[in-house]
Design a protein around this nucleic acid. Structure first.
Lengths: 137, 137
DNA sequence: ATTTGACTTAGAGTGGACTCTAAGTGCTAA
DNA sequence: TTAGCACTTAGAGTCCACTCTAAGTCAAAT
């Protein structure tokens, strides 16, 4: 299996070597070492960093991903917990998208207003928005 | 028109007084002052902070909102620029949502895999994802 | 008259996610 | 053999968006 130096690996996955070392500090990805104590990464690491970036892209924090890594290291017995963690992330991510769409709706109205298609303000929806926020708590 | 102290206003809009003073430092909202030099906010400020939070919710940074405030202060001549700024934000926000959906798709597959519905890893899509990322630059 | 409580300021501290620097090691090519 | 280059480390610096502290002011209630 091919071995990648940190520089090659960084190029492959579109991160900097700084970031990879930072992720290592955070225990997100631990490469192996050669005889000279230099890091090398494998295709498995490419797969993992790929998934990691998808997780990050759903809004998971580094700490949450670290938590996932810990669970994974604990073996198959942690599968239910891992699954639940991902489901929570999924739910949060979906509601973030819905939230974003609400904000985008207001933004669109304002753009329309700038287009001269509307004369009044967008602010009357804000009261509803606050109520919605509070009802979530 | 009703006047709100910073504490009242903070309650109304769901922010802390700290945050309101911080926004003021950043020139995002400048309340008026009474005879004792205490801040007071009005219903117009409630409208503005409402819109500001919607802007923030679309992913605009504080600096971008400051930019918008500056344009607004420059008068009607800046309307085309303001409209363009909001359109750019809108486009970026929409593509962030699309991006998020891609990540969510991968997450869903992984959850299905944990559910025992799928047999292999999600990583084969990562190569495509990287290509897509690069083609955007 | 004093205490309470909400306000005022400048400036320090926090947490997240990087991003970089400095000093040093070790292979490779001229 | 020396110059260049990619690597190594610990730790410092950056940017963002808050969040809080300390010291002080002022009006109202006890």
């Amino acid at each position: 299996m091919k071995k990648y130096s940190i520089g090659e690996f960084a190029n492959q996955v579109g991160l900097t070597t700084y970031t990879l070392r930072y992720y290592e500090k955070k225990h997100l990805i631990i490469p192996q070492r050669d005889a000279n104590d230099r890091r090398y990464y494998t295709d498995d690491d490419i797969k993992w960093i790929g998934f990691l970036l998808h997780l990050k892209g759903t809004g998971m924090s580094m700490n949450e991903i670290t938590e996932y890594v810990k669970l994974r290291a604990a073996g198959d017995s942690s599968i239910p917990k891992r699954k639940q963690l991902l489901k929570d992330v999924q739910a949060r991510s979906l509601s973030q998208i819905e939230e974003m769409k609400v904000h985008l709706g207001v933004l669109s109205k304002k753009i329309d207003w700038y287009d001269g298609k509307l004369k009044h303000t967008i602010s009357e929806s804000f009261g509803d928005y606050l109520k919605r926020l509070r009802s979530k708590e």
